[in-house]
Structures are given as structure tokens and as C-alpha cells.
């Protein structure tokens, strides 16, 4: 197999890319060999060598423990549990949360053969038992699988004796009621609070 074919074949395996877009990407890279292709190859090689899952929280970083876990300006008493590293990034972009994270790396799904032992849960339970930790926030996706997983995690955390909370479900900020789906409206009504 030619080098070009090999690159295209590998690129086509990326999410969101098919054979056609992989060909386009490769052609584009070839045209900008110095400016793009070489730096990209170096960056990929470096990342492949240095990026590790943080042994504390599961976040991806070149340092272990990761920059978030070692940042002592962050509140060590609150842990926010998320499905994926992408969710950490989303929460970090929002700059809304100043505690620490825990990435469990997926959701329970018997259909996909994912059981509790495949998720990063034992370390979470151990962390929740640390005296410094007072609250664990479950921030799984609002899907059936996500919520079932949240339920399971809550059960696992019960013996640790920390406060366990979950994100609210309801009207998005800036959202118009008329456009909301019925399920969300119902959740929002159920979770209403006095003002």
C-alpha cells in the first residue's frame, strides 16, 4: 500500500470523516506540506507520546496528575462526574465550575457490552471517601443510558456518605417555551422552584 493510501485510510477512520473527505484532507495537506503537514505530524507524534489519562480523574493531559487536579486554586471539596473528556472541556469553556472533575469514560450499556467494571468508578468511590470531599455532582447526559448510569453511580457513592447531586433538567437559557419538546417542558415543570 502506498503512503498516501495509508494516510487516507487512517484519516477515513476518524469520526465525521469518510473516504471522500479524507481524500480532500490529504490533498490539502500535500499542498501545504511545510506550513501544515509537517507541524501536524510533529504535533500528533508529540501528543501520542506525552498525553495520558490522569490517574486521579481520567482527564487527558501531558502531566499526571492533570493540570486541573494539581491546580490548588480549585475547590477540592466538589467533584463533578462526567461521561467523557469532551464534557470536561464543555464545562471548562463555560468557566462555571471551579471544583475538580472525574471522567468515567462512558455510560453503562449492556447492548455495547459496557458494564460497571469498564467505567472509571473505583477511583471515584475512593476519592469520594476522602475527608476533603463534601459533594459529588453527577453531570451525565440527559439520555436514558446517561441517567441510568447516574443512578448506578449514586448507588455506589451512597456508602461514602457525601452529598450527591445532579444537574437540573429544563428550559435552556434564552430558550422559548414554544419550541421546547414535551419531555423537557415536563421536567422543567416538575423541577420548578419558588422565587
Amino acid at each position: 500500500m502506498g503512503d498516501l493510501d495509508r494516510v487516507m485510510q487512517l484519516l477515513a477512520k476518524l469520526p465525521g470523516l469518510g473516504p471522500r473527505s479524507a481524500r480532500r484532507a490529504v490533498l490539502h495537506l500535500m499542498k501545504r506540506r511545510e506550513a501544515l503537514m509537517m507541524p501536524l505530524a510533529d504535533a500528533l507524534a508529540n501528543a501520542a507520546r506525552s498525553i495520558r489519562a490522569c490517574s486521579v480523574c481520567g482527564n487527558l493531559d501531558s502531566a499526571d496528575p492533570c493540570a486541573i487536579c494539581t491546580d490548588d486554586r480549585r475547590d477540592p471539596s466538589v467533584i463533578c462526574v462526567v461521561e467523557d473528556v469532551a464534557d470536561v472541556w464543555a464545562l471548562e469553556r463555560a468557566v462555571a465550575f471551579r471544583g475538580r472533575y472525574h471522567v468515567i469514560g462512558g455510560v453503562l450499556s449492556a447492548l455495547d457490552g459496557v458494564g460497571p467494571e469498564d467505567l472509571n468508578l473505583d477511583t471515584l468511590v475512593a476519592r469520594a471517601r476522602e475527608p476533603a470531599v463534601t459533594e459529588v455532582i453527577l453531570a451525565m447526559n440527559a439520555t436514558v443510558d446517561g441517567q441510568t448510569t447516574a443512578h448506578y453511580v449514586a448507588d455506589r457513592l451512597a456508602p461514602a456518605g457525601v452529598k450527591v447531586s445532579r444537574l437540573a433538567h429544563g428550559v435552556p437559557v434564552g430558550g422559548e417555551l414554544d419550541y421546547l419538546d414535551d419531555g423537557t417542558l415536563m421536567q422543567a415543570l416538575r423541577a420548578r422552584h419558588s422565587v
Partner: peptide, 25 residues
């Protein structure tokens, strides 16, 4: 679907199976 798939795999594991995930489903 999830529950059926879990029950099927529990049948394979036999009596040693961990039933805590069945409880949450």
C-alpha cells in the same frame, strides 16, 4: 433492549453474576 441484553449476558455468567446493574436498569 438494554435490559434484555443484560439478562442474556447474566445467563452466560451464571450464579456468580453481579446483579447491581440489573437493579439500576
Amino acid at each position: 433492549k438494554q435490559r434484555n441484553s443484560l439478562l442474556k449476558s447474566l445467563r452466560k455468567t451464571g450464579p456468580r453474576a453481579d446483579l447491581s446493574t440489573l437493579d439500576v436498569w
